[in-house]
Every structure is written in structure tokens, then in C-alpha cells.
């Protein structure tokens, strides 16, 4: 009798041990992919929203980020945090009669703004449109840019329209994206949670998501970076055109404008009465994309022939 009980106890404890091993094994197997995880820093985890950071905080964060980029990408970079100039209101105009669909702006933007090369992220989409329609559903996003301009087509570059009334900032559940006083809608890449609601909200398809960690060859990295603009983005966050604010806030033109071979692009300060952009808005018959959406873009298109 006593041995029987003993055996019973042994059997039970054996079963229990077996179950324990099985459970531990199952948990281990479930978590196995975490072995490939690169852990972030605690400072990064607890970092506060951009608008709550002091100058010193930002300086500390910038130093940390520069170090991380150096470590991950092998490039020595400088991150600045240029602030909007008071009284300035940026706007863009694009002459569709001139644009020849070469997509130079697309490549220049990718280089300037350190977009991921793999997977390829581009802020500017150039649409090949049949003459005689504004119907975007007839556009071709994948035309061959070796053979441009094509007879019977015109070319429509689209990037973030920097709306006066942006649907994207409205929907963001954590205020990770907002409109700056100079009219540029920016994203705090260290605050975005990656829900992609802004992408669903944008009527211009201007936002891109980092589905994986951006890959950029070391020699292709643009080392002059802005905190709210072209620094290399983390995985899992949204990004988009920011009117090259690290350049334009320092008086330069956006990269897409500088490279444009036909001079179709004009950038400037709406509040400056002498600016070219003011001249165009006053004298050309400009229009905006999807005016009916009520977004009030700061991006104007016109034909001048």
C-alpha cells in the first residue's frame, strides 16, 4: 500500500515536472524570434514629446541619435533643430506646362532626405496624366521616365501639400504630427506610435511608413540632418515631405526645386510681397488639388501656356 502511494506520488511529480518543462519550452519557442532583437535605450523609451523638451533635452537627444546613427550606419552626421522663422509662411507652386516628368525631383528628394533605399521610400510621386483630364484615376504611377515627355500626356508631381487644414494632424491619437507656424506639417519620429491613421486620412497619399528599419548605404547618407526633417527615421513610424525645412528655414530652396531641370518649381514665403510665389499666385491662374476636400493646400499648380 505504502509503495503504491509512493509510486503514485512519483508518477505525479514526474508528470508535473514534465508539464513544467513543456510549458517552459513552449514559452521559449514563442519568444524565440526575440533573439534577433536589437534593444533600444531606456532614454529613448522614456523620451517625451518634442514640444515638452527643453533646449538641453533636445541637445542630449541629438547627441544620442548621432551616436546611434554612427553605430548603425557607420556615418558621421550632424543633427540640427532649426526653428521656424517668425512671420514666414512657406508655399510652393508648380508649373505643369514645364514639368517633363523626368522624376529628378524624386531622386534628389530621396538623397537629400535620407529615405530608405530598401524598402524604397519616396516622398514625391509623379503622375503621368492623359491631356484633357484632371481625373487622378486615369493617372499612371509607373510610367517609364526614360521616355519623357510623351505626346498627349502631362506630368503631375504630388508631395505633401502642407495643408492649412490638415486632416492628418487631426486624426493622430498622440499629437505626433502637427503644423508649425511657418506652415510645415512635421512629425516627431520619436513620438509616432505607427498606427497609420494619418495615412488613411491624407487625401494626397503623401505619407509613408517605415515597414522595416531603413536601409541606406553609408556613402549615400546625407550627413546634414534636421531633427524634424531628414534624420534617418526609426522603424515603425510615418514620414513625409517637410518642404526640406532643414534647408528652407536657413534660406535655401528645397532639394526638389534645385534639381528640377525645367524650372517648373517655385518656393517661397507667402508673407513676402516681393516673393516669386506671391507673383505667381497673383498673376497665374493657379489651382490646388482636391479643393473640394477643404484641406486648403499651400501647394499651387498652374499651366502657363
Amino acid at each position: 500500500m505504502a509503495t503504491e502511494t509512493n509510486n503514485e506520488v512519483k508518477r505525479r511529480s514526474f508528470l508535473k515536472a514534465g508539464a513544467g518543462v513543456a510549458i517552459a519550452g513552449a514559452i521559449g519557442a514563442t519568444l524565440a524570434p526575440l533573439r534577433n532583437m536589437k534593444s533600444g535605450t531606456l532614454d529613448g523609451f522614456f523620451q517625451q514629446h518634442y514640444t515638452r523638451l527643453s533646449k538641453d533635452d533636445i541637445q542630449g537627444i541629438i547627441t544620442r541619435l548621432e551616436g546611434e546613427i554612427g553605430r548603425d550606419y557607420g556615418a558621421k552626421v550632424t543633427i540640427k533643430d532649426p526653428k521656424p522663422k517668425s512671420g514666414v509662411r512657406f508655399a510652393y507652386a508648380l508649373n505643369l506646362s514645364r514639368c517633363n516628368g523626368s522624376r529628378r525631383c524624386v531622386t534628389a528628394c530621396v538623397q537629400e532626405n535620407n529615405q530608405s533605399r530598401d524598402p524604397a521610400i519616396q516622398y514625391i510621386k509623379v503622375l503621368e496624366m492623359p491631356s484633357g483630364t484632371f481625373d487622378l484615376e486615369q493617372s499612371d504611377h509607373y510610367y517609364d521616365d526614360e521616355q519623357v515627355p510623351k505626346e498627349g500626356k502631362y506630368y503631375l508631381p504630388v508631395q505633401c501639400q502642407q495643408c492649412e487644414n490638415p486632416p492628418c494632424t487631426k486624426v493622430c491619437p498622440v499629437e505626433a504630427t502637427w503644423k508649425e507656424p511657418d506652415g510645415v506639417t512635421v512629425i516627431d519620429y520619436n513620438w509616432c506610435i505607427g498606427c497609420r491613421y494619418c495615412m488613411a486620412a491624407c487625401p494626397y497619399e503623401a505619407r509613408r511608413f517605415n515597414f522595416s528599419k531603413p536601409e541606406i548605404p553609408k556613402e549615400d547618407i546625407n550627413p546634414d540632418m534636421g531633427y524634424l526633417s531628414n534624420r534617418i527615421r526609426p522603424v515603425g513610424v510615418v514620414e513625409k515631405c517637410h518642404f526640406c525645412l532643414h534647408r528652407t528655414r536657413e534660406g535655401k530652396n528645397p532639394a526638389c526645386l534645385e534639381v528640377c531641370p525645367t524650372g517648373a518649381r517655385v518656393f517661397g514665403d507667402l508673407n513676402d510681397p516681393e516673393s516669386e510665389i506671391r507673383y505667381i499666385i497673383k498673376n497665374k491662374r493657379t489651382y490646388v488639388l482636391k479643393e473640394e476636400a477643404g484641406t486648403v493646400p499651400a501647394f499651387f499648380y498652374y499651366f502657363d501656356v
Partner: peptide
């Protein structure tokens, strides 16, 4: 966990 490590690239979603 695979998705957590690699990002949403493991899904069929796109921009």
C-alpha cells in the same frame, strides 16, 4: 515576436 523584431514588413500591408 517575428513581426515585433522585423517590423510590419512581415505583413502584406503597403503604403
Amino acid at each position: 515576436m517575428t513581426q515585433f523584431v522585423s517590423g510590419l514588413t512581415t505583413t502584406g500591408m503597403t503604403d
